[in-house]
């Protein structure tokens, strides 16, 4: 998604003079053109993420629109207190962009993975998370970020082109219709289920969350849950503070959902069960988020 991000930011650089871009010393082979166009408004902040967040906060206070870029754990986990205090408490519209949410950095190892970012950002006052599913979602999201007066976190990952039948990015989308069960996911990992759903004709009703928090579940999703009484969530993130808990909470609180015989489970990252490392696909499979492990889980859960 970095390529799409770069293209979208290039457009922004031409049209929005208040746009400033801060990077934590990253962007090789991605942001060179952006840098040449933006001049003083493109700042390599060095490897100093705490300072970068507070500087961005002051720029936002002065009505600049700062986008802050780094690898996800470095822009989210490392400067968490600066995000909480300067961005969250003050509702400063700084746009955090974390590349490689989940196991996106694959063989780079656990320090470069980010399995807590949704939980951390969900806990920050005023923060809104944007989670693209497809590469083409990025351009839509950048426009939404400009309109959003809250602090935001854009969670980038590796994905594919958006199919023509899928609607543009929104807070909640149905990306595949079906009647045998409901899947709710966040991020491109949900596409692993889309692929298996097509391959084995599982007839699943598949939804993706684009923005967190959200007020309520869509009516069509509620109807689908009531129809099949089976809900499975999927995320490349730890269970604690992730969307599995969030969706469960919304289901339990929703009086129009018949809870009594609902079958519910969450697929999520469990970290490093074997203690070994591989590429993103390998980590997904080890955590039952992809490959044969996911296939077995789906067939078992949905009785296929």
């Amino acid at each position: 998604m970095r390529k799409e991000l770069s293209a979208s930011l290039l457009k922004l650089a031409h049209t929005h003079k208040s746009f400033v871009f801060l990077t934590g010393d990253l962007g090789f082979m991605a942001f060179e053109e952006l840098e040449s166009i933006m001049g003083d408004r493109f700042v390599n902040m060095g490897i100093s993420e705490q300072n970068m967040i507070s500087v961005a906060a002051s720029l936002a206070y002065d009505e600049f629109v700062p986008f802050v870029y780094s690898i996800a754990p470095f822009v989210i986990n490392r400067p968490f207190e600066q995000i909480r205090n300067e961005l969250g408490l003050h509702n400063m519209p700084v746009k955090l962009i974390g590349n490689g949410g989940g196991y996106g950095y694959g063989i780079m190892g656990s320090t470069h993975h980010c399995l807590e970012d949704i939980a951390l950002m969900r806990s920050v006052q005023n923060m809104r998370i944007y989670a693209p599913t497809y590469n083409d979602d990025i351009e839509d999201i950048i426009q939404l970020l400009l309109l959003d007066k809250n602090p935001n976190y854009l969670r980038l990952n590796n994905s594919v082109k958006r199919p023509s039948q899928v609607e543009p990015f929104t807070g909640f989308r149905n990306i595949s219709k079906g009647k045998s069960g409901v899947v709710v996911g966040i991020g491109p990992v949900v596409l692993n289920i889309v692929e298996l759903n097509e391959k084995y004709s599982l007839d699943l009703d598949i939804w993706v969350i684009g923005m967190v928090p959200f007020d309520t579940l869509p009516i069509e999703l509620i109807e689908s849950i009531n129809h099949s009484a089976k809900v499975l969530t999927i995320e490349e993130h730890y269970a604690a503070g992730g969307i599995g808990e969030l969706v469960a909470s919304h289901i339990l609180k929703n009086p129009t959902i018949k809870n009594t015989d609902l079958k519910f489970d969450s697929l999520c990252a469990r970290g490093y069960p074997s203690g070994n490392y591989g590429d993103q696909k390998w980590h997904q499979e080890e955590n039952s988020l992809g490959g044969k492990a996911l296939e077995n889980t789906l067939k078992q859960f949905f009785n296929k």
Binding site: V20, D40, R41, V43, Q50, N51, I53, S54, V55, A56, A57, S58, L59, Y61, D62, F64, E81, Q82, N85, E86, L89, H90
Partner: peptide, 25 residues
Amino acid sequence: IPFATGSLGHGLSIAAGFGFSSKLK
């Protein structure tokens, strides 16, 4: 009081941000 302080080590970065903003403007 543009920003709440109390957790130490934030203020100089906040000031640096204002300084950089002034420079841009």
